[in-house]
Design a protein around this nucleic acid. Structure first.
Length: 400
DNA sequence: TCTGGGGTCCTAGGACCC
DNA sequence: TCTGGGGTCCTAGGACCC
């Protein structure tokens, strides 16, 4: 059976909450919620908090009501990222075939590692022991023949466990599960399936694929039907270096502390977000052609407007001017705005100085300004450079 | 004091080209 | 004077994931 379950899915248990509290013995066994901001949501909750009904994604206000005694901790993404890097390194010492899904979970193809390290259960225990010893947090592991089943198995294993699903037991494992357990089935799709009278994965499996496709679309319908039979061809896609596998888009958005109806404030925020996105794109040596602005109104309705430029850009000023133009074209008359966002899509590698030769003298000035900002941020940190100064003076004041 | 922030993928209509 | 069809790009929205 060693060769029958070549895919592991490893998932940290309550990752953010575990990391934030591992050095706090006083909080062991206590309800802990990672989140914050007065308009925020729960990012992660410890298991004692979950037993009160707290879930990630839930508004903080509701979480506090459900679990008034919980300790609320602000997230520290630098620590999360450091722990994540170490954990992924443990995985890579087991097999080079690691597909990172997020900071706290990954697929491992262990088909080449069993001769050296033993059965899937042996390997899962090895990983769990090392993660616990070296990082002080627990994780759960699912083992199966395919990524889709391994992912469901690890959820079944939580917290702090292992579940192996051999191929012969796949349908017996899958079919009793609720449809919302399937990867890709969220609230909306689950409601659609319920309307068809389908509540379990087995129900989906025994529904003609054409019926599913009529209700959910060709791709989704076909995918769900295959998943319900544990039939998924997708292999573990070990992510290569970022050079070969860059992001397709990058963006930033921000919910205001309170709803805003002053266009000046919105524009200043668009500039700040454009600078943030521009800096990220330049750091990754990318450039993108499509700029998208997102606006969420007080009633939570959300719209996007995008424009594709003739040439890819990584220049903050160009991103900002495109974004500001899109926002102005909305013609909003003091609408109450909850959130704005800026995203650059269609990212492609930016080859060295090619871009700069294309620029006119004025634009070259903005690219130079960006480089000065990037250098200043590297030396003094992001707080040293206030993008708002760009807006007001149209020149870069490094003394700011 | 309901509802974050970072992404990916799919759909659908219209423009435009051959 | 009654009109094809395929392919690609662009835009907007929606669903989903962590």
């Amino acid at each position: 059976m060693t060769g029958e379950c070549p895919v592991l899915h490893v998932d940290m248990d309550a990752f953010y909450a575990s990391v934030m509290t591992r050095d706090r013995p006083d909080l062991a066994g206590c309800p802990v919620i990672v989140g914050g901001g007065h308009r925020g949501v729960v990012l992660s909750a410890s298991y004692p908090a979950r037993s009160s009904g707290v879930r990630s994604g839930m508004p903080m206000t509701r979480a506090r009501r459900l679990c008034p005694h919980a300790t609320v901790v602000a997230p520290d993404y630098e620590v999360f990222s450091t722990v994540s890097t170490s954990v992924m390194e443990i995985f890579r010492q087991v097999t080079p075939r690691v597909e990172t899904l997020s900071l706290d979970e990954a697929f491992l193809d262990i088909s080449g590692a069993t001769r050296r390290l033993g059965s899937p259960v042996d390997i899962a225990e090895l990983i769990r022991a090392r993660v616990a010893d070296e990082q002080g947090i627990t994780c759960s592991v699912g083992a199966a023949a395919t990524v889709g089943v391994a992912k469901l198995a690890s959820r079944r294993a939580k917290p702090d466990g292992i579940v192996v699903v051999p191929p012969a037991e796949t349908t017996a494992f899958l079919h009793p599960l609720a449809v919302e357990e399937l990867w890709g089935v969220g609230e909306r799709t689950a409601a659609q399936l319920h309307r068809l009278g389908l509540r379990t994965v087995g129900d989906v499996a025994h529904t003609p694929v054409t019926t599913l496709q009529r209700a959910l679309g060709t791709v989704m319908g076909g995918q769900l039907h295959r998943l319900a039979w544990g039939d998924d061809q997708r292999m573990v896609a070990s992510r290569r270096g970022v050079e070969e596998d860059p992001d397709k888009s990058t963006g930033a958005d921000e919910t205001f502390g309170r709803d805003i109806d002053d266009p000046e404030v919105v524009l200043r925020e668009l500039l700040r977000l454009s600078a943030k996105v521009g800096a990220r794109i330049r750091a990754a040596k990318l450039a993108g052609r499509t700029v998208t602005v997102k606006v969420r109104f007080a009633d939570f309705t959300t719209i996007t407007r995008s424009r594709t430029r003739a040439e890819a850009t990584d220049v903050t000023r160009e991103i900002y001017e495109t974004a500001a133009g899109l926002f102005a074209a909305l013609g909003l008359q003091r609408a109450r705005i909850r959130l704005v966002g800026v995203r650059v899509e269609g990212l492609q590698p930016r080859a060295g100085t090619y871009r700069q030769l294309e620029l006119g003298a004025r634009d070259q000035g903005w690219a130079d300004a960006d480089q000065a900002v990037d250098r200043a941020v590297l030396r003094f940190g992001a707080a040293a450079v206030q993008p708002a100064s760009l807006l007001r003076s149209r020149t870069l004041d490094l003394s700011a």
